[in-house]
Each structure stands twice: as structure tokens, then as C-alpha cells.
Amino acid sequence: MCLAIPGCVIQWNETDSPFASAVVEFAGVRREVNMALVPEAREGDYVLVHAGVAISCIDPEEARKVFETLHELALADEKAHAEAAEADRDEEPGANA
């Protein structure tokens, strides 16, 4: 019910709320979307659309941060694995011989 789909604003048609509207593209499909709640959206921005109404502008910087954090987790995991492997080698009999 609360499903909202991201789409790219192609062209504003009307700026007068409550009829504000723009053409928004979803994976190649273009649809007219009500834009009354996102007057700040510019062409090329991504908006989240629910029941024919754009409810927010997607912040690409915030989206990127999720993957930055994931990348940091990956680096931390690799480091931990490398350290564990090192420790295993040290414990092997004859490793220091």
C-alpha cells in the first residue's frame, strides 16, 4: 500500500498546486505525476512516487553513504580475515622453523 517507486523527472508541465505535474520516467516508461508536494524538484532529479503523487526528492548523496558504509564494512572484514589468517600461520607447527 505504501509502495513508492523512484523515477526521473523529465519535464515539468504545470506548477500550480494542486494540479502541479511533470512527466516522470520509470525504467523507460513515462507517466504524468502530480508534483504538488515536491516543488523543489528539478528536471533530472529522482522523485519517489506513490499513488500518482511524488512524495519526496531522492537525495543521491544520502543514497551513496549507505554504500560507503558497506564498503568500510568490507574493508574491515578483509582486514580481520587477513589478521586471522596470519594468526593461523603463526600457530602452524614448524612455521617459525
Binding site: 500500500m1 505504501c2 502530480n34 500518482g52 503523487v53 512524495i55
Partner: peptide
């Protein structure tokens, strides 16, 4: 029907 997501529409 709907939660706050839908009320503005």
C-alpha cells in the same frame, strides 16, 4: 484508505 503515505494524495 491508507497510512500517512497516502493521505496527501
Amino acid at each position: 484508505v491508507g497510512f500517512e503515505t497516502t493521505t496527501p494524495a
